[in-house]
């Protein structure tokens, strides 16, 4: 009996993990079905666009700017080991657009937006506001989840695009300001090196990461436990799940786009 206990615990943990994947998958399907079925709540969608998109711009911009600058310094220093300092514009561009732009924006959205959605909806749940919505003939999935998920899917790619541009600009400032690169040549090299697939993959990743971030916030909020502890757990769980899923999805999408 004692010898099989660790095995039983592992089995229970595996089953619980698989069950949670199933619950999230069903929740995602339910959320998507409400996105395409009326009624639509335009005001809630507009507020979600503002919160997820516009109000995330400062943190996204600053993150991309510093990352682009640091990337230029790293590539210059690393490239100097084999006389390849000149590739800074190309590597900054490809690094920001293909990887760092979407991933960093995704993680920033997970930190800023997922946590906020989870805490807000979980608080609504523990204060019976979700029940109140139902008694007022308003479906919580339609009113709370669908607008946030749709807004995130639409606006996070735009944030990724902005992050990509600002990141490249960060690299440009460092390279032309302190590494001695010619500004015109830097911009020309960047523009010539990037391909359409790089940009498409970046924006597609943004849409997927936005979906994950909003969905996790809504899922953990809606399934929150009771009291302040329940809200805290929901918020923490939502950010952890969103960050891990974003990184896993990034790996998969990179494979799909660039293993051809």
């Amino acid at each position: 009996m004692m010898a099989t206990a660790p095995l039983a615990a592992l089995g229970r943990a595996t089953l619980a993990f698989l069950a949670s994947i199933g619950r999230v998958a069903l929740f995602a399907l339910d959320a998507l079905s409400h996105v395409v079925r009326p009624p639509f709540y335009g005001r809630e969608f507009a507020i979600a666009l503002l919160n997820i998109g516009w109000l995330s711009l400062p943190v996204v911009g600053l993150t991309a700017l510093f990352t682009g600058g640091a990337l230029a310094l790293q590539i210059y220093a690393g490239g100097a080991r084999f006389n390849a300092e000149a590739v800074v514009p190309q590597i900054v561009a490809i690094g920001m657009v293909r990887e760092l732009g979407p991933v960093l924006v995704g993680l920033m959205i997970a930190a800023r937006v997922t946590s906020s959605i989870a805490a807000e909806i979980a608080t609504m749940k523990v204060t019976e506001q979700i029940d109140a919505l139902v008694t007022l003939s308003t479906h919580p999935m339609k009113y709370l989840t669908a607008p946030r998920v749709l807004a995130a899917v639409l606006v996070v790619p735009a944030l990724v695009g902005v992050g990509d541009v600002i990141g490249i600009f960060g690299g440009y400032i460092v390279a032309t300001g302190s590494l001695g690169f010619n500004p015109a040549a830097y911009l020309k090299n960047t523009a010539n090196f990037l391909e359409a697939l790089d940009i498409v993959s970046s924006l597609a990743k943004g849409a997927v990461f936005g979906f994950i971030a909003a969905l996790m916030g809504c899922y953990f909020g809606m399934t929150s436990g009771r009291g302040a502890q329940g809200v805290g757990r929901a918020t923490k769980g939502s950010v952890e799940a969103a960050a891990v899923l974003i990184l896993a999805a990034n790996f998969l999408l990179t494979g799909i786009f660039f293993s051809i």
């Binding site: 009624p39 204060t127 019976e128 506001q129 109140a132 139902v134 007022l136 003939s137 308003t138």
Partner: peptide
């Protein structure tokens, strides 16, 4: 549900909406 009204224990008002929109919630949609 349209036949029911309910007063919740903690009132369960929607924090993000002004009072009149809370009261008229049902009259603004559906």
């Amino acid at each position: 549900l349209a036949r029911f009204g309910m007063l919740f224990q903690g009132a369960a008002l929607f924090d993000s909406l002004p009072v009149w929109q809370n009261v008229a919630f049902r009259l603004l949609r559906g």
